[in-house]
């Protein structure tokens, strides 16, 4: 049976495991779910102070929206990146943290990864909801643009699931993967125009157009740009960009599923 068909069949288990992740995440903390918002807000404040006020990073005003607020500019890139980084880290923990389950009960193991990512997806939705509220308060009438943004979330989810499946199962075989990924995520964060506008990189790499092209191959560059198009600038992202993102995400998902199904049968022994 293909893993996609199994996923559909075990929808209920998937929902329950996702709920378990969500409920377990903030149990016994006083603020509970508020933490899910406080974390990105704290990062926002820190980065705004450091990059906007100390380093004088100047984003372009939104075109055509005219919005000109660094904190919002930052959030439009930070939230999608957090989804990527939480999704990947969560997936890697999902198999190792549930080793007792994998060794004792049979069920499609990809559900563990999918449920972990789904729980972060729910957080991402809530964060986007709060961002939408902030945008409206700041004068950006973002509501009609939430639909294309949700399309982007869908494509990004494919991308994250692909990476999650790939890295989680590799991490069972080589525990180095999680440390390696920790470093990669840091590099990835600064290789993506989150705390700075992409214009800065274009200017710095003016004499090296090849490197700039390479930089723009990073799917997260396009994701962040596309999210900003929808939410900050209030315009459609270029079709070429979204097609590229869709292609890369579909390929990543296919690779993740392939590697996962290849390595999955031995999971119970290797854990």
């Amino acid at each position: 049976m293909s893993s996609v068909a199994e996923l559909a069949k075990s929808r209920e288990l998937f929902v329950n495991l996702t709920l378990r992740e969500l409920r377990g995440k903030y149990k016994r903390s006083l603020l509970g779910w508020t933490w899910s918002l406080l974390n990105p807000l704290a990062t926002m404040v820190i980065f705004t102070v450091v990059f906007r006020f100390f380093l004088k990073v100047e984003p372009d005003p939104g075109n055509p929206s005219g919005l000109h607020v660094f904190a919002i500019f930052l959030l439009c890139g930070l939230l999608p990146f957090n989804f990527l980084s939480n999704g990947i880290t969560g997936s890697m923990g999902a198999l190792i943290g549930n080793s007792n389950l994998i060794q004792k009960v049979f069920f499609p193991r990809e559900i563990l990864v999918a449920a972990s990512i789904a729980s972060w997806l729910v957080s991402f939705w809530i964060e986007l909801g709060v961002l939408a509220l902030i945008l409206v308060l700041a004068g950006n009438f973002v509501l009609p643009w939430l639909l294309p943004a949700l399309g982007l979330v869908l494509i990004q989810t494919m991308f994250v699931i692909g990476l999650g499946l790939l890295l989680s199962v590799l991490n069972v075989y080589f525990r180095d993967v999680q440390h390696f990924v920790g470093i990669i995520l840091q590099i990835w964060f600064y290789a993506t125009p989150i705390v700075y506008p992409i214009r800065v990189v274009a200017a710095a790499l003016e004499k090296y157009p090849a490197i700039f092209t390479l930089y723009k191959l990073n799917p997260m560059v396009r994701f962040v740009e596309a999210y900003r198009d929808c939410l900050y600038d209030l315009r459609f992202p270029p079709l070429l960009d979204t097609s590229y993102l869709f292609g890369v995400s579909a390929a990543t998902l296919a690779l993740g599923v392939l590697v996962f199904t290849r390595l999955e049968p031995k999971l119970a022994e290797e854990l």
Binding site: R20, R23, R28, L101, V105
Partner: peptide, 27 residues
């Protein structure tokens, strides 16, 4: 399969929540 009892229980969740969770793991 009863290979190990209560595997998959989440310690922070209530018995009720775990019954539903564990039951759905078992199908």
């Amino acid at each position: 399969a009863l290979l190990e009892l209560g595997s998959g229980f989440h310690p922070e969740l209530s018995g009720r929540e775990n019954v539903f969770l564990n039951g759905s793991i078992l199908g």
